[in-house]
Design a binder for these strands. Structure first.
Lengths: 129, 129
DNA sequence: GTTGAGCCTCAACCTGGGTTCAGGTCAAGG
DNA sequence: CCTTGACCTGAACCCAGGTTGAGGCTCAAC
């Protein structure tokens, strides 16, 4: 079943990931070292699913280091739900802080759009540290 | 009134900004080239307010390039409110996109925390692109 | 007179997530 | 035979926002 038949270019096209990114993920340990034929990487079909997982996790805002840790735990036999729960526990406060900062920034910008000050020094938006 | 008496170290302490950051801002044009005495920078007191403006703007999420553009327009005589309005118009959609992305990420992480899947491949959280 | 703090410049380094480039290999097609 | 295209490696480059380090001045105190 697990025949290694895909070239890196084919994998990239099917997964919607650039060839250079695939090689980069391999160096970072997110993808296994594939079998090689005459020096060229030959992938089995499953790697496309793995790239899909990586892409989804990236879009969700995880760093490659976090994704790599998650994948290697699960590769090592750890239940996915357990690792996902740990990840959520660690990462949620961080994401919530991002949301709060961005909302504060939005409020500030809205106020900036309504400002009537002639100089920045006089503007209450810039008061204190 | 505008006596240039402060050393870079004093300015840094009073403004809560590192000395290396002050020199960096100067290179980037956010701070004027100060008067020099025996090769050392001598600042007038007003620079502390300017550093406060820069710090506030940074905390609000503006890049140094944006802050520099704002400051130079206003230094050049443009009314602050006008430049702030332009800035808000340009920057708000960006910040709102950040908020939406972060909220989507939070939702995903909350779902991840409740996941029961044994493998990532089986998990609906990772479905599709 | 020498020690030490604080200043100076310029250049290199850091993180993240890759991209791009130089120089080379290999197989197929005309 | 020669070209074209896909692949290979390793190193350099990109962005931001600084920090760190080397090597050197000067000023004041002791």
């Amino acid at each position: 079943m697990a025949e290694a038949t895909l070239s890196i270019g084919e994998v990239g096209r099917k997964a919607g990931v650039s060839v250079s990114a695939i090689r980069f993920y391999e160096r970072r340990g997110l993808l296994p070292q594939p079998e090689r034929v005459a020096g060229r990487r030959r992938y089995e079909h499953g790697v496309i699913g793995r790239l899909g997982i990586i892409s989804t996790a990236k879009r969700a805002g995880l760093s490659l280091a976090e994704i790599g840790a998650l994948l290697s735990e699960v590769d090592g036999g750890a239940p996915a739900h357990e690792q996902l729960r740990r990840l959520a526990t660690r990462k949620l406060p961080e994401v919530e802080a991002t949301i709060e900062r961005a909302q504060a920034t939005r409020g500030w910008l809205v106020a900036a759009g309504e400002c009537r000050c002639e100089t920045l020094a006089a503007c209450a938006l810039f008061d204190q540290g």
